[in-house]
Simulated assay, not measured.
Amino acid sequence: MAIIELENVKKNYQLGKTEVPALQGVSFKIEKGDFVSIVGPSGSGKSTILNLLGCIDTASSGVVKINETATSELTDMDLTRIRRQSIGFIFQTFNLLPTLNVYENIEFPLLLKNRKISRQDKKKQKEYIDHLVEEVGLTGRENHRPSELSGGQRQRVAIARALVTQPQIVLADEPTANLDSKTGEEIIDLMKRINRELQTTFIFSTHDQSIMEIADHIIRLKDGSVVENRRNNP
């Protein structure tokens, strides 16, 4: 079953009095557990697609489906719920809160999702956050703030934060762009391992050849259109 489906999606932006097309009839499907690389030059529509999949933006026309439900049919409250519960976000600039430590940054999406929870559930949450900290290799650094971490460590925090709500889908916008090649490879390996173990669907907007090489599904864009849509491991 396709977890995501785009059907003839178009997206236009208004620039002054001019309407600029960002996507021109894009169609593709993504299956549960896919490790997807969306590639193409700057301005090809990669970030626009992530914004649509993340329920941050809406299409000008066409259909965007998540779990077989068209996002255009959902209320703002429904879209907010999907963002908080079903989708995790990883950004190239990490987007960590500078005043919070590692543990608190990872915990933050849970506070947005569950403002009031029982003591028992709070204990389960702590156990899961501790598990994620260990999974991303940051045990012992829970009380460090972002300014005390390397770029690779900050991205590991961002990955754990994206996973803390146990989302079905993780959207990653150029997640290795601000990392050196060795650290970038470690981050990619970490995400691929999580993808295999949890069957979390990862969707990357990227120029990174390393991600393209291990992706099992590549969608290539040019000028807002899909010019290649192939699976590496049929």
Results as ranks from 00 to 15, higher is better:
P234M: 07
V9Y: 05
L138F: 07
A177R: 05
N178P: 09
G54Y: 10
T165M: 13
A2M: 05
K17N: 15
N8G: 04
L163E: 04
K124S: 12
G140S: 10
E135Y: 07
I194Q: 04
P109S: 02
Y103C: 02
D223R: 06
R145S: 05
T206H: 03
F91H: 01
L132E: 04
S118K: 11
I187F: 09
S150H: 13
L149Y: 06
H207N: 11
P109V: 06
T139D: 03
K126P: 05
D57F: 09
F28Q: 04
E228V: 02
V64F: 05
F108V: 01
E197D: 15
F35R: 01
V63K: 14
A70G: 05
T200H: 04
G54I: 02
N101G: 05
I214W: 00
R161Y: 10
G184D: 07
S210H: 13
E5S: 15
L96A: 04
E186Y: 05
R196N: 12
I38Y: 01
E19C: 09
I188D: 08
K17F: 02
Q209N: 11
L163S: 06
R119K: 15
V164G: 08
L52I: 09
R196G: 00
S181A: 14
C55N: 07
G224H: 01
D78P: 02
N8C: 06
T165A: 15
E107M: 11
